[in-house]
Design a binder for these strands. Structure first.
Lengths: 203, 203
DNA sequence: GTCTATAACGAGATAGAC
DNA sequence: GTCTATCTCGTTATAGAC
């Protein structure tokens, strides 16, 4: 069959996912249609249904791929950055990349539309947030143990706050069409976590 | 005419706005239709068009009313609460009320769908955020002068961060169907702002 | 102020040919 | 793997009666 779990690079299925992903991230899952994808790809709607038999199935594939890509990016941060502050900065940079492409986080967008999503799509959205928060909690816990960063309470709770803050900053920055709003929040978020010796002025 | 700027209490127009507001806050502007409102009110679709000739016009009225109500709530906080910490706590309580009704902030939801909105709706959404941030910036500025709260940088920037954090916390709390996630973020947000004498342990 | 009726269009989806 | 043709339904919106 064609609608496989992991479509080939550059395949039609992959191209469909690319176009659909951009549309969802900019207009929402309820803000685009198969016709929009078909028009952009010079395909017909039935051709799309061959690859993804329903819109909900397309949605599931979108979230799964997005989460896999995000997870890979987190692994890359673990491998490439040293110390909690640098890793957290790398994390905020992931969001900044999305915003630079004039997009909202896919799962942040779907979180807004959550009540209208199919059960499988809902599960996939939750999985995305759980993975993010688990990764962040690990970084926070280790960073505090090392004395690199400081915060009160359980790491999991602080991780939830960080995810919420970044998602919210993206959400509000987009209407203002002002990336610097997000950058300011991201900078402040990391800055407030990093332990500063007494007498050290902020940049 | 019936589609007046300020419909009477309990009028059909007001009831339409009540139902539509809930639908938008739960399902998004692109996630409901006139048919949904009509079914719930035992009206017909043309009856709705009599009151709000287009969906975009209904959307404008929704945002305007929501912003007016929110502004009144901010005035009430100014009049009823003493000191920046209490006022900020009152502010987070406004969001909590929305979440308790299983809703997203109207303008947070519309921020996600921003690219699909009419120009008047876009303007109204921006106006909401500007008013919120201006009010918050005033509280933050005064609170810092009084020595009640502490933060670095310009009050306007911190205000943007607070709005983003609360919107994002709502956004993520809803899929998890877990109000306590929001409460934890709100508590932490205020707590981190309040100036604590050295040696004071956190709750 | 609300109705019936309907227009005009777009949505998601299917049958069957090539 | 993609097409033409079509179906069914839902959407926003209007005309005109009551």
């Amino acid at each position: 069959m064609s609608t496989r779990i992991r479509p080939e690079e550059g395949s039609t299925a992959q191209q469909i996912l690319d176009v659909a992903e951009r549309l969802v991230q900019r207009q929402g899952f309820n803000g685009f249609s198969y016709a929009d994808i078909a028009a952009e790809m010079n395909l017909t709607k039935p051709a799309l249904h061959y690859h993804f038999s329903s819109k909900a199935e397309l949605g599931e594939a979108l979230i799964t791929r997005y989460t896999a890509r995000f997870t890979a990016a987190l692994d890359a941060i673990d491998a490439g950055e040293v110390g909690a502050p640098a890793k957290l900065e790398g994390y905020t940079a992931l969001y900044l990349d999305v915003l630079r492409n004039k997009r909202m986080c896919l799962c942040g967008m779907l979180a807004a539309e959550y009540q209208t999503l199919s059960p499988p799509m809902r599960r996939a959205v939750l999985e995305f947030f759980n993975r993010n928060e688990a990764w962040l909690a690990g970084i926070l816990d280790e960073g505090r143990s090392e004395g690199e960063i400081g915060f009160e309470g359980p790491p999991g709770e602080k991780a939830q706050m960080i995810v919420g803050t970044l998602e919210g900053a993206m959400l509000v920055a987009r209407p203002h069409d002002d990336i610097s709003r997000f950058e300011a929040v991201a900078r402040r978020l990391v800055h407030e976590l990093v332990v500063h010796p007494a007498g050290t002025a902020a940049g």
